[in-house]
């Protein structure tokens, strides 16, 4: 019994130690980085393609960790990184850290009702207020379907 318990203890000690992993999902493999501003300015060049972007994590889904917003390389710009629930879970501690994310650029045409529904849901998640009257038309949403990420310093 003593040998058995010692073996278990050794295996546990030698296993890779992790607090919150700084690599998520498939990790980051692409060599070339794409500027977020470039994706925002010319989405037609990137939709459906896999890109690597980096930026400051300015917000994290507070319920499931299923999305983050990355700040763009220009002022007042950001892009949403959406990941499959459970596959990648971003911890709240990622806020304020620089992240490198890899994923496929997506463009979604939303009706006014869909925009209202999404913003209402986002407001509920972030605990902020939202007035549906501020939405006057549908819009095109640009986002990255995140496949992997690396966040140093976590």
């Amino acid at each position: 019994m003593r040998t058995f318990l010692t073996t278990i203890l050794l295996v546990a000690m030698l296993s890779p130690t992790t607090t919150f992993a700084k690599d998520f999902g498939q990790g980051v493999t692409l060599a070339e980085e794409t500027a977020i501003s470039s994706i925002i300015d010319h989405p037609e060049n990137y939709v459906g393609k896999k890109v690597k972007v980096s930026g400051l994590v300015i917000d994290v889904c507070s319920t499931r960790g299923c999305w983050v917003y990355l700040a763009g390389d220009r002022d007042f710009e950001k892009i949403r990184i959406k990941v499959t629930d459970g596959e990648i879970v971003f911890p709240m501690e990622a806020r304020g850290k620089k992240a490198t994310v890899e994923g496929v650029v997506e463009s979604m045409e939303l009706t006014r009702e869909e925009v209202i529904r999404r913003r209402k849901h986002h407001a509920e998640e972030t605990g902020t207020s939202f007035d549906p009257a501020t939405v006057t038309s549908g819009e095109t949403i640009l986002r990255i379907r995140g496949l992997g990420a690396a966040i140093p310093g976590l």
Partner: peptide, 12 residues
């Protein structure tokens, strides 16, 4: 939750 949802991956 970290362990249950298999966030460590690897040996876990």
């Amino acid at each position: 939750n970290f362990l249950h949802l298999n966030h460590p991956k690897k040996a876990w």
